[in-house]
Amino acid sequence: MTLDKTALVVDNNNNSTEVNLTGSASDTADMLDMTIGETVGKALLEDAKLNVRHANVFYGDKQAIHDISLDIGKNEVLAMIGPSGCGKSTFLRCLNRMNDTIPICRVEGSFLLDGEDIYDRRQDPVLLRSRVGMVFQKPNPFPKSIYDNVAYGVRLHGLAKNRAELDEIVEKSLRRAGLFNEVKDDLHKPGTGLSGGQQQRLCIARTIAIDPEVILMDEPTSALDPIATALIEELITELSEKYTIAIVTHSMQQAARVSNRTAYFHMGKLVEVNDTDSVFTTPQHPLTENYITGRFG
């Protein structure tokens, strides 16, 4: 396993207001001197599902991602943590080209899915997104029935030959999302009438209905209560048997519970990535340590 020589240069003139310091004055001084340097830990894997090399993302003139290289393994749950505004969502949205919808966003670097370039000109974002699904922070069911929500992607891609097959896919997806028993009598009621946690599970069901290979989740439980959160975390663990999952979260407990590997982002850079256990027990980079011990962020 060789780590690419990706020297991450810290811009010392960079305004560090985004670093939310809660520690003492001496901590502050430490922080400002601290060089982020190269990504520490285990960023690259063998036989990975997704390979990202030297990713740079800009919003207009502003750079949001600085030279990140990271692999995501098959059937792995990768957790991404880091202070607000450090570029977790931006990075995640590069993986299914959702950033294409933001006109000022420019993406550089190489992104490979099973060795295929995601940003290749011949790559159709429609096909890509059917392989790399996404669940958003705020549950966003369509204002249609529960059934139609789940069936939407299936119909879109023509994945069911007939009504019976469609029914089967809808039921199976709802079951896997742990929602079927709660809604089986209300399949034709609007999806927007469900509770927040149910809506989020509906969105997950909708995503897995088209059977993607990778599922990206951007803070999927931040709007949910602890019970709904626990349900979804269980679900993530189950889904990882079949899918590769990248999840952004603000809860370190959640990262610790669901993920195999954890990546710590800081000001657009990937500071540390390692097996979840070692990140939380023996963080190698002082910034990571500060963050997980709750000194800032």
């Binding site: 919808t101 699904g133 705020k138 369509f142 939407y152």
Partner: peptide, 23 residues
């Protein structure tokens, strides 16, 4: 129309035209 609806459809692999006319 909230942007989250557009994103939801796009993320499921709908094309721009499908989002515009379908949602």
């Amino acid at each position: 129309v909230p942007n989250s609806i557009r994103e939801a459809a796009l993320a499921l692999g709908a094309s721009k035209t499908q989002v515009a006319f379908g949602h």
